[in-house]
Design a protein around this nucleic acid. Structure first.
Lengths: 210, 210
DNA sequence: TATAAAAATGACTACAAGTCATTAACTGAA
DNA sequence: TTCAGTTAATGACTTGTAGTCATTTTTATA
């Protein structure tokens, strides 16, 4: 059945086109300031059509987020070194994430703007993507487990718990820098230094000195 | 002019009454699900009146947040021990904050739900309240500075920077617990343990062993 | 008691999310 | 080719809500 395959491909393509259009507008004007009508116009479709591909505005937003997470995931995996220790990988992962956020500030903003309290407005499977094997969080858990095995990471806290803590630590400072920069500036703090220092603090609480 | 004073007092009172009403509804239904009309009804005023006291819905939300921060500030100050070292005070402050969040989960939710990207919709002076001398953040900076003076806290990172990092670390895990509990549960993690472990991790990266 | 100032009102406007009856495009069989 | 059935797309419409403002009510003052 070649036709059904083609249709499926076209459907995915269209979905991607809509996400592209939404992303363009979002990066330009900020998500808050972009309406579904505008997205429809930008993607050269009627508004109703958007709702054939996305359950809600939130769902569309999350699709952008999700694509960013996939990008991030690829970068993090690329930098993963299977011969290095868990601790080394942990440090690399943090650095990669920070580099990514410097390179794609708009994309990071998109992630940080997503309000997770609206999970119920998503297509049913969407919200569980963070728990899929390929997600950044899962990679982090894997690295921590590895570090606990090779003795370079503390063992007294379960891997999943440690991962969640490190992830949210880094994310919180990224959020500070990408959404609350005025506050950071008001305290006369350099945002890059802030990111690096925070990273050093939480990493030093987790890896074991050899 | 006793009359003007009385009027000012009544104005503040009314403002507080509106915040009370909004808070009741918010705690009951979640902020997203409460309209200005409902708040008007609950506070037995017309909708237009609300806008005499608050510039916008966001401004009203922030006023709730602000009152919570004042509560928190009082608690933290009460637990401040001027005879203890900076490090000890730092640990106490963290514990107090965590205890507060356990005691008043709704209030913490209100803080965490506030979207700081909407600062421009606030009454002009509102957004700067975090930088006022009495705020929790400023108390934290003070404690860190003290610790740096008495040698119980690392000196290589400026006080303001360290404070912001610690604050956002703790806040991020609180957010996880108060807004993203399903994720925490999906990873089979106990939320109280998560809070305590995260606290231990970031604090150990900051205080100096004697 | 009259007048001015301040406070409160709620009908109204503007705008955006989401729906759905209708129309258009495509497909596969006759 | 044609046509019926299916799938995709449309956009006018509904619904809900934030915020406004001309009007009314209340309060202070002379």
């Amino acid at each position: 059945m070649g036709i059904n395959e083609r249709k499926e491909r076209e459907k995915q393509q269209r979905k991607n086109d809509i996400i592209d259009a939404a992303e363009r507008l979002f990066f330009k004007h900020g998500f808050e300031n972009v309406s579904m009508d505008q997205i429809a116009r930008e993607s050269e479709l009627a508004k109703g059509t958007l709702y054939l591909y996305f359950k809600s505005r939130e769902d569309l937003h999350y699709s952008i987020v999700n694509r960013v997470l996939e990008m991030l995931s690829k970068v993090l995996k690329r930098d993963y070194d299977k011969h290095a220790s868990g601790a080394e990988n942990l440090i690399n992962l943090g650095k990669s994430y920070i580099a990514f956020s410097t390179q794609y500030p708009d994309h990071i903003r998109a992630i940080m703007m997503f309000d997770s309290s609206k999970f119920e407005k998503l297509e049913t499977n969407q919200s569980l993507k963070i728990l899929e094997p390929d997600s950044p969080l899962m990679l982090l858990i894997h690295i921590i487990r590895k570090g606990q095995m090779d003795g370079s990471v503390r063992k007294d806290i379960p891997d999943r718990e440690l991962a969640l803590i490190l992830w949210s630590h880094l994310a919180s400072v990224l959020e500070l820098v990408s959404l609350r920069l005025p506050l950071v500036k008001a305290l006369e703090i350099d945002e890059n230094e802030l990111l690096n220092k925070q990273f050093e603090i939480s990493i030093s609480g987790v890896i074991l000195k050899q």
